[in-house]
Design a protein around this nucleic acid. Structure first.
Lengths: 344, 344
DNA sequence: GTTAGCACTCTGTTCACCTGAGTGCTAATT
DNA sequence: AATTAGCACTCAGGTGAACAGAGTGCTAAC
């Protein structure tokens, strides 16, 4: 357990380093208003903190830099008590004003989040597989191609073009759509392939032969899809961070961001509230010197989405946590209201 | 007019530089198989070429580097005659295999293009405003919200959620949709707002009062949209290019790429065939040391889309031009066939 | 327990120096 | 008249020495 003085100094060092990105020395600290100790005393405390693993030196005679353990302690014990304020109203207004369309809201939120912080924001939409089919539409384009449109109760729209044998007539198509809508309405997307195969396919083969092949394609087109949508804001914001001076780091980072699956997995872990992973706590090699802060929001009764900010370990934790907290609450509230009206 | 020898040497220098990214010296050239002159002679030729403006030195005793004028000459006079080959079949197969869905095809093409070249590819979809409305659908979600879906004859799907006063009933909605479909079918998206305002709005006000406000929103949501879709492949590919060592360059470049409007404008200039803009020929400040190669493809009778590759001025012009040429032809062919079947 | 003082350590910068790649010019060669 | 060999010259980039500055750890005094 840290003494009060140790805690104070740890906190001051971290705050200073977060702001300046430079190792902080004993003299600089002793000059701060809230500190009335000499540099020498502070050096002793710093030595202790280093021994305990909360601080590090970049070289033998440099100032101190927080270690990951230091950040962890800071996040766990310092921040929780004193949430930042300000900006909260921005989040609230944002959600209220933009909430006409879920996609628009999320996209906008991602942008605002990264503008406010200068980090990269990532928002994961709700598991689309859990939403239920509202309506299926097939719009013929030519006599052998059409576009299939699928609307879920959450207002998501997915669409695919597909081709089919010319024998199928427009009225056939209409029949098929009617059958599908009749049987599939209210079924969750996750169960769709199963239900289709079990209940509907045989029914349809009565109407049209050889439909199966095209149908197979259509099915795969819809259901091998990424199960969640990813919204990223401020991809280039990190370039302005001083730790991003190394070109190889930049390369590695952007390469990893291109792999959507990986990013999705990063955020997907089920969780409640705010979760902070610092540096090596992250599982993915490429972000071992980043910190990732995630918050989940509720969508309806069961589904969850995730909001995250990705920045250097030297991150403005207090601000970010406050912000994410606010946004996730606002989104949960807004979605709750919206979803409630959405029942049958 | 360049002598044969000057041309040969210019060509060799450019080819060498494109490959190595290092200034090329007289000795290196004299060693090449296709050259049987001494270094001294070559130095004389190089001095001439420099005086003519086709070559430059990075400092007084460095090897030569092609100037923009040099690249321009190379592109205009050297390449045209001898198209590269290979990879052409890749493009053909790509278009044939993936052409089920226009979006998928384009997305995939952008990726392949940038994988093949290590440059960033940009594809502009056809002007969506020129396509014609095929069908409009409104799917109610709650008793005061719905999602509107718009399908064009090209198979594009646009959708927006919107809210409306609770007084409007489901049957009212259905009527509205019927009216809209009846009146708007076959109208180009560009004319849609006009037609709606002139012919349909009054008709609808007979059915529903106060519909106008919500409708206004819906209209703006659809029509203030970006008029063209942008597909970008290999955004990070450029990071592997050696000229991209300067962090500030990277920042400037990515900042500019974030501005979609600007990128669209870059490619939008009406043109036929292949167009190469080298370095300062580009209007946008941020890409004054890039080269941009664009090719257009035809979509139906009138509409055009653009395919482009963006890379350092030290670009593999021959390969890129060949590739773009092939892809744009394949796409035009495929789209022609597809679109022909698509008439009424 | 706190602080002043001092020797020590390490980084980053500057400067001189050197090497290697390449040039331009002149004079000899074909 | 064109080509080439030879040589002096230039410049970028790398290496190492010198040095200033920031910071530490330790000891002795307060």
């Amino acid at each position: 357990m840290l003494t009060e003085r140790q805690l104070l100094i740890l906190q001051v060092i971290i705050d200073d380093f977060i702001e300046s990105a430079h190792p902080v020395g004993s003299r600089a600290i002793s000059k701060k208003d809230e500190i009335s100790l000499s540099a020498a005393t502070i050096r002793n405390v710093m030595a202790d903190l280093e021994e305990l693993g909360y601080l590090e030196k970049t070289h033998s005679s440099s100032g101190r830099v927080p270690s990951e353990k230091g950040y962890r302690y800071y996040v766990d014990n310092v921040i929780g008590s004193s949430m930042g304020k300000g900006n909260l109203s921005i989040m609230r207004d944002l959600v209220r004003d933009e909430f006409i369309d879920f996609e628009k809201l999320v996209q906008k939120s991602a942008e605002v989040l990264s503008d406010l912080t200068n980090y990269t924001s990532i928002i994961l939409g709700p598991e689309i597989f859990e939403t239920k089919l509202k309506q299926l539409q097939i719009v013929p384009l030519t006599n052998h191609s059409a576009v299939a449109i699928l609307v879920t109760d959450s207002g998501h729209v997915e669409h695919r073009s597909f081709t089919f044998p010319a024998e199928i007539s427009a009225s056939d198509l209409e029949k098929i759509v009617n059958i599908l809508n009749d049987r599939l309405h209210g079924i969750s997307l996750a169960r769709l392939p199963e239900v289709i195969t079990k209940e509907v396919l045989s029914l349809m083969q009565m109407y049209v032969h050889d439909f199966e092949k095209s149908f197979q394609y259509l099915k795969s087109a819809f259901f091998q899809e990424q199960p969640v949508k990813l919204y990223i804001g401020g991809k280039t914001k990190l370039l302005t961070q001083p730790e991003f001076n190394d070109i190889n780091k930049i390369r590695a980072f952007y390469q990893m961001m291109e792999n959507e699956d990986q990013v999705v997995n990063l955020l997907k872990a089920p969780q409640h509230g705010i979760k902070v992973t610092i540096g090596n706590e992250n599982e993915i090699e490429e972000i071992k010197d980043f910190s990732l802060i995630t918050a989940s929001y509720q969508f309806g009764s069961e589904q969850k989405g995730t909001i995250a900010l990705l920045g250097p370990t030297r991150m403005e934790y207090r601000k970010v946590i406050t912000l994410l907290n606010a946004l996730s609450n606002e989104m949960t509230d807004a979605l709750y209201l919206w979803y409630k009206n959405n029942g049958e």
